[in-house]
């Protein structure tokens, strides 16, 4: 059975069992063993689901992956805002000089205005990223709720933790831009190199 079909089947089975148990309890079933067996089936499905959630390391999604992703996105907004600010500082300085240059200055001012217009990308991307962060936080909340509802499902002992770095060789050294609180500064790097 395909995984998706299996899930649908399990969901339907849970509903079927619950309805059957409720029906028997409401109408006073004469054999408690039938109810007991149905409840055992339900227990089996719940345990299986817990094990699957555990094996999927669902807790890592809300505890590690999403917070890391949102931090990275926040850093993108902050860094682009900073860079855009510096571009506009230069444009304002150029504009001031251009004000004293007559006709040629007007041409220069016209060009700096185009740079200002283009800088609005930072505002738009900032708003878009904020929306993405908000969506990720909603997913994080829902995954947390799901994991809590199913109890502290233990990860499958044989599986590799999502947080574990399984990369080999040079690839293992590549982590992209570091967050400022995790990165070491150029000064620190220089000191480290000097120490050799």
């Amino acid at each position: 059975m395909q995984p998706e079909n299996k899930k649908t089947f399990e969901r339907e089975k849970v509903v079927e069992i619950i309805n059957s148990v409720l029906n028997k309890v409401e109408h006073g079933a004469d054999d408690p063993k039938v109810i007991l067996n149905e409840l055992k089936d339900l227990q089996r499905i719940i345990e299986q689901t817990r094990a699957e959630v555990g094996a999927a390391q669902a807790g890592d999604i809300s505890d590690k992956h999403i917070p890391t992703a949102t931090d990275e996105l926040d850093a993108v907004v902050a860094n682009t805002a900073d860079a855009t600010g510096k571009i506009m500082d230069s444009c304002e300085a150029i504009d001031e000089i251009a004000g004293n240059l007559g006709e040629q200055g007007a041409v220069i001012s016209g060009e700096t205005i185009k740079i200002f217009e283009a800088c609005s990308f930072q505002d738009i991307t900032g708003q878009r990223i904020t929306k993405v962060v908000s969506t990720l936080k909603t997913i994080e909340e829902k995954v947390s709720r799901l994991v809590n509802a199913l109890g502290a499902a233990m990860p499958d002992a044989g599986s590799v933790s999502e947080g574990e770095d399984t990369r080999q060789g040079d690839e293992r050294l590549l982590n992209g831009p570091q967050m400022s609180d995790k990165a070491i500064s150029q000064d620190d790097i220089d000191k480290l190199l000097d120490s050799f």
Binding site: G85, M88, C91, E92, T112, F116, E117, D123, G126
Partner: peptide, 10 residues
């Protein structure tokens, strides 16, 4: 957004 304020002002 400070960026936008500066753009509109300019």
């Amino acid at each position: 957004y400070n960026t936008m304020l500066r753009i509109i002002k300019n």
